[in-house]
Design a binder for these strands. Structure first.
Lengths: 205, 205
DNA sequence: TAGATTGTTAATCGATTAACAATC
DNA sequence: TAGATTGTTAATCGATTAACAATC
């Protein structure tokens, strides 16, 4: 029973609905309710959740707070994940300031840049560090996730340094493809691809 | 011959590779080359491109600059698309400052917020406008795409105002689901879903 | 010409949906 | 009990891959 990547992508959405309902005092919800909120089929919701256990009850539905707790555990929200950001540009700064990171256990521990006028700048109580210090930092800290926001010629070198020092997960905003070392996990957010997709669909509908 | 949404999402990636090769003087590329750059199969690249025309030649491959031009036309890069941004927070500002928008024909024409201390602020030569003025602005300007970055209780109202005044395309960064009016096109970027997916995959691999 | 590589159909693979027995 | 709704298998749908004739 292999869990597909699409199922995993939806877990966070189920969690959000469970939280919303739990917060507003709802006791139970049906797969139909969840599916309508998200524009999915009820069947899909049930099948997705069943990969991880039997959280529902026939004739009753899902207890929302229990479902939320279960999904939080599955997603590891209670475990702290240390993050570093490569690139202190607009995007890097926006991510560093993103207010929902802590709710899910994410913690920015450093930001790196190569521009002299960025190094030393304070962002959310983190002093932007020189990219030259990356390797040294990696050797002295546990880093779980590396966020790539800066499109530099040395992106492959940076990825290799990070990988070779124990972090294999990359949240990548850089559009230019780079060589992904064996064993790394990359989750891409390509803003321009997304916007171009929207624009195409808008012009051809 | 229906073009799938996945094909459309890849067009922008093909275009980027074509541009890169065109810029550095490469004359032709094969589907195999493109596929290796992107981690896809050559078969998929050929099939995707063939939905839009016969851009390649047997035994030769694809002329990169011609391919780039064709993809630019398909994606409508030469047509100006007017964009408004709802929310002048970190994310809204990062998008407004995103340097690649103009290359693809996108133009930010206004930014709206509801916080008194944001209204009037200058972002990239655009003065943040009061969300109260949204409807009036819509009536006097052609808006092609609306970017949603602010999670407010009135998000549905905002979407309806925009929709009812001629813009049906939404680039949505707001995680909380909202009712999408009939006929609208929504392209979602859910940062926390993406980061949670990465984190899950990292912990379960 | 021979080698390379596309265009395009058919086969395969994988994800979603439908159906319904189980059971609260 | 009757109604509601899950868990789970089977059927369907859709996307990717393989294969190869066409042809540069």
């Amino acid at each position: 029973m292999k869990i597909t990547k699409y199922t995993i992508q939806r877990l966070s959405k189920y969690q959000r609905i469970a939280k919303e309902c739990c917060d507003n005092g709802t006791e139970r919800i049906s797969s139909k309710y969840i599916s309508e909120k998200l524009g999915l089929s009820a069947s899909q919701v049930r099948q997705d959740l069943n990969y991880f256990g039997t959280f529902g009850q026939q004739g009753y539905g899902y207890n929302v707070c229990a479902l939320y707790d279960n999904l939080s555990n599955i997603l590891g929200n209670n475990i702290r994940k240390n993050i570093i950001i490569i690139g202190a540009g607009n995007l890097g700064r926006a991510i560093a300031k993103y207010k929902y990171l802590s709710r899910y256990g994410f913690k920015i521990i450093s930001i790196f840049d190569n521009k002299p006028d960025m190094i030393g700048v304070n962002i959310e109580n983190i002093i932007v560090d020189d990219i030259q210090n990356l390797e040294n930092f990696m050797k002295n800290n546990q880093v779980d996730i590396c966020v790539l926001t800066a499109s530099t010629k040395t992106i492959s070198d940076i990825v290799n340094i990070v990988k070779n020092n124990g972090c294999k997960a990359f949240w990548n905003f850089v559009e230019t493809p780079f060589k992904v070392p064996e064993g790394c996990i990359v989750e891409n957010i390509h803003l321009m691809d997304s916007l171009q997709t929207l624009s195409f669909n808008n012009s051809n509908s």
